[in-house]
């Protein structure tokens, strides 16, 4: 039984997610779904001179996937694409600091999977 999953910082990212929305003149647009629970994420971003100058996400999701989207986008914004490519799943999970069961791991990874799709 995990008592720390819904700690205040995660709930704050859920209630008031950072970078939530959509960039209309985006340089890249990706969508990713989790068919297991019906979660979806829509990621849009702007790239200038090898740097991610803006990124936004939106979609339907649980606390975990939304908080993960908020934390991840805030972290990678204004980083170079090279830096973002080096940002791996392990880094991502230590960044969001949510102890996850196997089932919930998929929720957390949804924004990260969308990012990997965008990097391709």
């Amino acid at each position: 039984m995990n008592k720390t999953l819904y700690r205040e910082i995660i709930l704050e990212h859920f209630r008031n997610p950072l970078n939530f929305g959509e960039i209309l003149d985006a340089d890249f647009i990706v969508d990713e779904d989790n068919p297991l629970c019906g979660d979806s994420v829509h990621l849009t971003g702007k790239v200038n001179k090898g740097k991610l100058t803006d990124i936004k996400f939106k979609g339907e999701g649980c606390v975990i996937s939304r908080a993960a989207g908020s934390i991840m986008t805030e972290y990678i914004k204004n980083k170079t694409i090279k830096e973002i490519r080096n940002f791996n799943q392990k880094d991502f999970l230590s960044l969001i600091e949510i102890p996850l069961t196997v089932t919930r791991l998929k929720c957390a990874l949804l924004p990260f999977s969308a990012l990997q799709k965008a990097l391709k």
Binding site: K3, C37, G38
Partner: peptide, 27 residues
């Protein structure tokens, strides 16, 4: 999301299910 409902209930050992319950056309 129902997953969050189920997970918070689980903190108090209340086991329910959340998801599409193998009935996606119904969802």
């Amino acid at each position: 999301h129902p997953h969050d409902i189920a997970q918070i209930l689980d903190e108090d050992n209340i086991a329910i299910r959340s998801g599409h319950h193998c009935a996606q056309p119904l969802m």
